[in-house]
């Protein structure tokens, strides 16, 4: 029982990470039809930025962690904005080329991180509280899970509130549904593109800092390894659906944890099988619009 609780909570924590990556991917895809392969790099860069901050503070305080998160989010957002303005926008409406550009960017940036921070992982430490555990239903749960879950829920609520209560949010929601009609109402939808890239980049940057806390290190491959699961989550959840991404993140991560423990490390394979099964039953994903 206590093992199961630990696995479930850990799964939800990992799902929170997936969601932080997948939310941006899904929003960007939903609005712009762009699959962003460079999203993992936003995450990695956010993680390194956070590490640089905490390294300089080097006190393992909460302030240092909060600052890392803020800087990680800001760096993620800025890089994402630059990507959109300099690369994606030039290829407006040319979806295949847009994907190719992000592929090239992903290859180049991972190599650049190698060059700057080295191929070996750098180790990250946070507030001591995160390494401690608390008893929940008989299981000893490491506190970092709670941090992951708490921040991801906050990000989810923040994005939902942004989408619901701001004019940009309105434009984005309308644009996901019918982009050309948004322009036909006199709205420059490209502004919204930059905004979703910024939101996605910030979420990925936060995800990077949290991932480095959770795994205890940052490496140039950190983003790419999470990105693949985020892709799977986005497809299972239905491209363009934030809620779908949230649900699929939890389902995928929990299933992965359970399979890893009870079926001798087959978590990754089970996730791929789940993907295949979902596609066979519902090609548009859980919450995706039916084509």
């Amino acid at each position: 029982m206590s093992t199961l609780v630990l696995l479930l909570v850990t799964g939800v924590g990992l799902g929170a990470l997936y969601f932080l990556v997948a939310s941006g991917l899904s929003l960007i895809y939903g609005l712009m039809g762009v699959l962003n392969f460079a999203h993992g790099s936003f995450l990695t860069l956010g993680a390194y930025a956070g590490w640089e901050v905490s390294r300089r503070m080097s006190d393992g305080s909460w302030l240092s962690l909060v600052l890392s998160l803020v800087v990680g989010a800001a760096v993620g957002a800025l890089v994402a904005i630059a990507t959109e303005l300099l690369l994606i926008r030039r290829l407006y409406e040319r979806h295949v080329e847009q994907v190719l550009v992000t592929v090239g960017l992903a290859l180049a940036t991972v190599a650049l991180f190698d060059g700057i921070w080295g191929t070996d992982a750098v180790y990250v430490s946070g507030p001591a509280w995160l390494d401690e555990t608390s008893g929940v239903l008989g299981a000893q749960i490491p506190h970092d899970r709670f941090l992951l879950i708490g921040v991801a829920v906050a990000v989810l609520l923040g994005i939902v509130a942004f989408l619901r209560f701001t004019r940009f949010g309105l434009v984005i929601r309308a644009g996901v549904e019918n982009r050309s009609m948004v322009t036909a109402l006199g709205i420059d939808v490209r502004m919204a593109f930059t905004v979703v890239f910024a939101i996605g980049g910030a979420a990925a940057g936060i995800g990077g800092v949290l991932a480095s806390q959770y795994f205890g290190y940052v490496s140039p491959q950190l983003g790419a390894s999470l990105l693949i699961f985020a892709f799977i989550v986005t497809v299972i959840g239905g491209l363009g659906s934030l809620l779908g991404a949230a649900i699929a993140s939890l389902a995928v991560a929990v299933l992965q944890q359970l399979a890893n423990f009870y079926a001798s490390g087959t978590g990754d394979l089970v996730v791929v099988l789940l993907l295949a099964a979902v596609l066979l039953v519902r090609p548009s994903g859980l919450m995706g619009a039916r084509a």
Partner: peptide, 10 residues
């Protein structure tokens, strides 16, 4: 090398 190739590709 991958940085240069990636940039060239872009």
């Amino acid at each position: 090398p991958l940085f240069l190739l990636g940039t060239l590709f872009v």
